[in-house]
Design a protein around this nucleic acid. Structure first.
Lengths: 205, 205
DNA sequence: ATAAAATTCAACTATTTGGTTGAATTTTAT
DNA sequence: ATAAAATTCAACCAAATAGTTGAATTTTAT
């Protein structure tokens, strides 16, 4: 193939992403990343120079992937209730594919809040203004209680994310096996939609 | 003083608790724990033998502290709406005093799910049966929508915990300073009570 | 065919870090 | 006062781990 080298670089990057997400920076081992990528440890430094450099790239990519998932849905054109349903759907499939990402970002963000703030600012990542505007309009139209958009946003994100972040906790406390947990999540989609919309007394137009 | 040694042991333990909660097992350094406890590094091993032993004790204590905070409130005698308000109050003051504990337990639990499960089982930590029973009674009495108690429990805990776990994220995205965040949390208490009770269409008796 | 680039490999170095030791000092109990 | 226990300290060891090197091999481009 003509891009063998680029492929290898990606292989390393994806392996690093998995290991860092699972173990965190401090817990990750360069050798484990090499094994996961099925290449020699020398190649890690050949392509990325150091653990720190490799980590920064992984971290930045994951942060860049994470927020647009929520914000693009919330910023789109749709009625409020449709938006909530879409957000749940989108978030669920994203988290199914990336079960460690939220935990990872939260943990590493807390290890170095300044780095996080700086990156968010540089990349100009922020909640869509359109969402705030839409809520104010819905309130005005009498279709929901008066709520602070930010309180609502934090609540929605928290309520969706929590079971993914705390899967082990939920399984242990409820004595779930993985299948039980899967069923729990599936049922949860319907529950969440109603819970959120009721929460602010939303009346579908 | 007559218990100088016991005092030192506690000093070490509390220092270790702070450092482990902040950095996690892999990120914590024995030297940093010693510095934090303002004692010589030798004393760590003198009292706790190894990093691993010290960590296990911290981990087990924090897990033992964390769950009863929620479960004791939910298992007490009170009307459903009072219980929710109490839970929010109790949780908030606990998390104010222990801002890292949720993040710590979730992270270390994910690093070693088996250890977590084993400990939960040994200590017989579980959600109070009384809470489930109460919800069923409230549903029967027509005071709330039919809900799975477990979905509700996960939602309540998630919605309360999330801003504490993700404080840095909230501050960065909303461009809050610490004071803004404090105000946000304070307002949130009232918001949460209404949001949760509305969420299941609870009618106060 | 040939040169350049990519990759492997094992052995190596340097650094970090957990853990140890033993002598000296201080504190506590009797 | 004395012995025992607790503590400090600096120096040290051992293990783990990040990172390097250079020679050999394979792959790719021309």
């Amino acid at each position: 193939m003509s891009d063998n080298n680029q492929e290898t670089e990606e292989q390393i990057f994806e392996a690093a992403s998995r290991v860092f997400q699972q173990k965190g920076y401090a817990g990750a081992r360069m050798q484990e990343i090499a094994d996961e990528a099925e290449i020699n440890k020398s190649m890690l430094h050949y392509y990325f120079r150091s653990k720190d450099k490799l980590f920064q790239k992984v971290y930045q990519r994951e942060v860049s992937r994470f927020f647009p998932v929520i914000f693009s849905v919330l910023g789109a054109e749709a009625s409020f209730d449709e938006k909530i349903e879409q957000l749940i759907d989108t978030y669920y499939s994203f988290l199914d594919d990336n079960p460690r990402i939220a935990q990872f970002i939260i943990y590493e963000m807390n290890q170095n809040p300044d780095r996080f703030r700086k990156f968010i600012k540089e990349k100009d990542i922020h909640p869509p203004k359109a969402f705030e505007k839409q809520i104010k309009e819905e309130v005005q139209a009498g279709r929901m209680d008066e709520v602070e958009p930010r309180q609502l946003l934090v609540s929605i994100v928290g309520i969706i994310l929590f079971p993914f972040i705390a899967q082990t906790m939920v399984e242990a406390l409820f004595e779930f096996d993985e299948q039980d947990f899967g069923a729990f999540l599936k049922k949860r989609k319907a529950f969440l939609t109603e819970f959120i919309l009721n929460g602010i007394n939303y009346k579908r137009p």
